[in-house]
Structures are given as structure tokens and as C-alpha cells.
Amino acid sequence: MVNNKTGQVVTTQMRLNSCRVENHLQPLKYGSGSMIALDTYFTSLSNGMPVDIKVQGPGAVKAFEEGKANYFMKRGQLNFSCATCHVAYAGKYLRAQIISPLLGQSAHYPTYRAAWGAVNTFEKRFQGCDKKVGAMPQKLESVNYRNLEYFMSYISNGIKINVPGYRP
């Protein structure tokens, strides 16, 4: 969702930490096992519901457009964008794994990946992709990653949430 006052994307983990602080609890570190477990549980409460992201208002439109630009921007030593793999090569093999398409990815995060041996978040996946293409990963909950997640979630509108997902 986009906070109408700030015009910034607010992720589930940010909302969870905000709730914790409002209830006099310490915020959890983004990407920590405790945060991922809480995020997975909270998101799983929406299982079976369709993704329904609205892009309304100037902040939302700005975040969507910046997320879209980030998705198609080439980066790193390999000069890849997210679209290089998840649009152009979706369904093909890369390093013995089938590349997933853009459509529906956000509906299954947090997800368990056998390669990780753990459940992880969409933004941790972004960091992993950045590393693999030779780009400098950004911090979790960075504006760029939040906007990217917002764009990718909008593209998955109508797909039913199924958390945690599974990937080999």
C-alpha cells in the first residue's frame, strides 16, 4: 500500500514493525528469522484472496512508475534487468532452474526455496538477483525495493495469494 501522507510504499514488514512499536514492543530487524516468520504467518492469513493493488493518487503513481523503471533497468556486470530473466527467458532453464514469469511472483512471497533451505522474502530475492547479475544489492526496505515490490504486486492483481510459496 502507499501512505497517502508520505507518498511512500509501506510494506507488510513495515506495517508489522509499526504495530509492534505502537504496542510498546521492539521492532524486528528486516530480514531476520523472526520477522520473516511473522510476515509469513500474517500474509498467509490472506491465502486464497486475490492480490488487489490499487494505484491511486500521485504518490502511488510515482511509486508504480519508479518500480516499473527499476524492473526494466539493466544493471550489474551482466547488464541484466529483472525483465531479462522473468519476461524474455520465463519458462526457460538458467543454472538448472526454470525461470519464473513476472505474473504471479508476488502472490507467493514469502516463499520457501529449496536452494536456500528456508523461507525468505521478496526483497531478499531481489538482493539475490542483484548479486547474481553483479549489481550492488540494496538494503532491505529501500525505496527502490519497495517500489519494485509494489509494481510487481500490481502486475499480479487477480492471482490468489498462496503463502508460503515453494521454489526448488
Score class of each variant (00 low, 15 high):
Pro50Gln: 06
Asn47Trp: 03
Asn23Tyr: 01
Ser18Phe: 12
Thr43Gly: 05
Ile36Met: 10
Arg20Gln: 00
Ser34Phe: 04
Leu25Trp: 02
Ser46Ala: 15
Pro27Trp: 04
Asn17Leu: 00
Thr12Asn: 09
Arg15Gln: 13
Met14Gly: 10
Gly31Asp: 07
Gly48Lys: 00
Gly57Gln: 08
Ser34Ile: 01
Pro58Thr: 12
Val51Ile: 15
Ser32Val: 06
Gly57Thr: 01
Val51Thr: 05
Tyr30Asn: 08
Gln26Met: 00
Ser18Lys: 15
Ala37Asp: 07
Gln56Lys: 14
Ser18Tyr: 10
Gln56Phe: 07
Gln26Phe: 07
Gly57His: 08
Glu22Ile: 07
Lys29Gln: 13
Glu22Ala: 11
Gly31Lys: 02
Val51Pro: 01
Glu22Gly: 08
Asp52Ala: 15
Arg20Met: 01
Ser18Cys: 01
Gly48Ile: 06
Met49Ala: 12
Lys54Thr: 05
Ser32Gly: 13
Met14Leu: 10
Lys29Arg: 11
Leu25Asn: 10
Gly33His: 14
Thr43Pro: 05
Asn23Leu: 08
His24Val: 07
Pro27Leu: 00
Ile53Lys: 08
Gly33Cys: 07
Arg20Glu: 03
Gly59Leu: 08
Asp39Trp: 04
Asp39Ala: 12
Ser44Met: 09
Lys29Phe: 08
Ile53Gln: 08
Leu16Asp: 03
Ile53Gly: 07
Val21Asp: 03
Val51Lys: 10
Glu22Trp: 03
Leu28Met: 13
Glu22Asn: 13
His24Trp: 02
Gln56Trp: 00
Asn17Met: 04
Met14Pro: 06
Gln56Met: 12
Ile36Lys: 11
Val51Arg: 03
Met14Cys: 04
Met14His: 05
Ser34Val: 02
Ser44Trp: 06
Gly59Trp: 10
Gly59Pro: 02
Val55Ala: 11
Asn17Pro: 09
Asn47His: 01
Asn23Ser: 02
Met49Cys: 04
Tyr41Asp: 03
Leu25Ile: 01
Cys19Val: 02
Met14Lys: 01
Thr40Tyr: 07
Ser18Met: 06
Arg15Met: 13
Asp39Ile: 00
Pro27Gln: 00
Gly33Tyr: 06
Leu38Ile: 01
Ile53Asp: 10
Gly48Trp: 04
Val55Asn: 12
Ser18Gly: 15
Cys19Trp: 15
Thr12Pro: 02
Ser44Glu: 02
Gly33Lys: 14
Thr43Ser: 15
Asp39His: 05
Gly33Arg: 09
His24Asp: 14
Leu16Lys: 08
Asp39Ser: 11
Pro58Asn: 13
Met49Arg: 03
Thr43Gln: 14
Gly59Asp: 13
Pro50Ser: 10
Gly59Ser: 08
Gln26Asp: 09
Ala37Asn: 14
Ser44Gly: 13
Ala37Lys: 11
Met14Asp: 11
